[in-house]
């Protein structure tokens, strides 16, 4: 085990965490390469935060090991903590301090001092958009600004591994875009772990995604790989002008169509969801419409979204 040659930023082996009878994290195994933006996903209570608390050395695992660049969280805890920047889920802050005082304090704890610290604070102000709020008391800031202060706190020492637990909560859409770009930029040099239960957020930013449920890994891979895993198969959405029952029976008789579900009938227009067991029934569908003399205003092939994968995997 050498420190410099470790190719993984984070290596989690057989990780378990029990709270009394409750088995919060069950035998997790995963690796994160350097420079990756890694999405850590799961519904609330899946064990994301517990896992991150173990990675950040807040609590030790019940069994198994966690290594950050080859350093073990149980035995080299202080060295590991130096490498990590952590935005906790609840984003706790010292509300009686001003933003400036707080960042200075965190910087000092992180071992930065003097002019280096001043320049880092200045950088954090501009990166996180906090310049105007520098001398405000943290307790009086809005949720979005508090979130930015939490981010600035996590990044002030330029950490190798940045762990963001639900970083977007409380941010407005513009801020979400800003922070998303920020994360993407950071991911060029740094390793980022991004925990969330909002899939679209993660799929927009992450290189690789791990989905956990009830403390167990249920899927992992790139966003594309995961999408393909969906059992949803082929689904077409069509909007056809014609008689409802007629459409139902005729479409069902097309080879390959397994199910038709009428979503809405608006005057003569019938919106339907058509599931196919084989690929590419688009053409036969179109022929069917033409042969029956109906009109078609919409026909699209829907690929399964990550949301569907997520729902399928985490609802059991």
């Amino acid at each position: 085990m050498s420190l410099t040659n470790s190719t993984f930023m984070l290596e989690v082996k057989n990780l378990n965490k029990k709270f009394g009878d409750f088995h919060a994290v069950k035998n997790l195994n995963f690796q994160i390469r350097k420079g990756e933006i890694f999405g850590f996903l799961g519904p609330n209570g899946a064990g994301k935060t517990t896992t991150m608390r173990m990675v950040t050395c807040y609590m030790p695992p019940s069994s198994g090991s966690i290594q950050v660049e080859g350093l073990d969280t149980s035995f080299q805890s202080l060295a590991v903590r130096k490498k990590i920047g952590y935005l906790a889920e609840s984003n706790p802050l010292y509300s009686d301090m001003t933003v400036q005082e707080y960042l200075k304090f965190v910087g000092e704890i992180r071992g930065i001092s003097g002019s280096k610290l001043q320049s880092r604070i200045g950088e954090m102000f501009s990166v996180c958009g906090l310049t105007k709020m520098a001398y405000r008391q943290i307790g009086k800031l809005s949720k979005g600004y508090r979130q930015r202060v939490g981010l600035a706190q996590a990044m002030i020492h330029n950490p190798d591994l940045l762990i963001l637990d639900e970083p977007m909560s409380g941010l407005d859409p513009n801020q979400i875009i800003e922070i998303r770009n920020l994360i993407k930029n950071l991911g060029r040099e740094k390793t980022v772990i991004y925990c969330s239960h909002i899939l679209s957020e993660v799929s927009a930013t992450c290189d690789r995604i791990l989905i956990i449920n009830d403390g167990e890994i249920v899927a992992s891979g790139t966003p594309d790989e995961l999408t393909q895993k969906s059992s949803k198969g082929n689904r077409y959405m069509a909007k056809i002008k014609g008689d409802r029952s007629d459409i139902e029976s005729k479409v069902l008789s097309i080879t390959g169509v397994s199910r038709i579900n009428i979503l809405k009938v608006d005057s003569d227009w019938v919106s339907a969801e058509i599931d196919a067991s084989q690929d590419d029934i688009g053409e036969s569908l179109f022929r069917c419409v033409v042969d029956n003399g109906w009109s078609l205003s919409e026909l699209r092939h829907e690929s399964a979204s990550l949301e569907d994968v997520f729902t399928q995997l985490t609802r059991g």
Partner: peptide, 14 residues
Amino acid sequence: KVKTLELLQTWPVS
């Protein structure tokens, strides 16, 4: 109460 202890204990201070 405000859970800053969690943060404090993930910083490199003993």
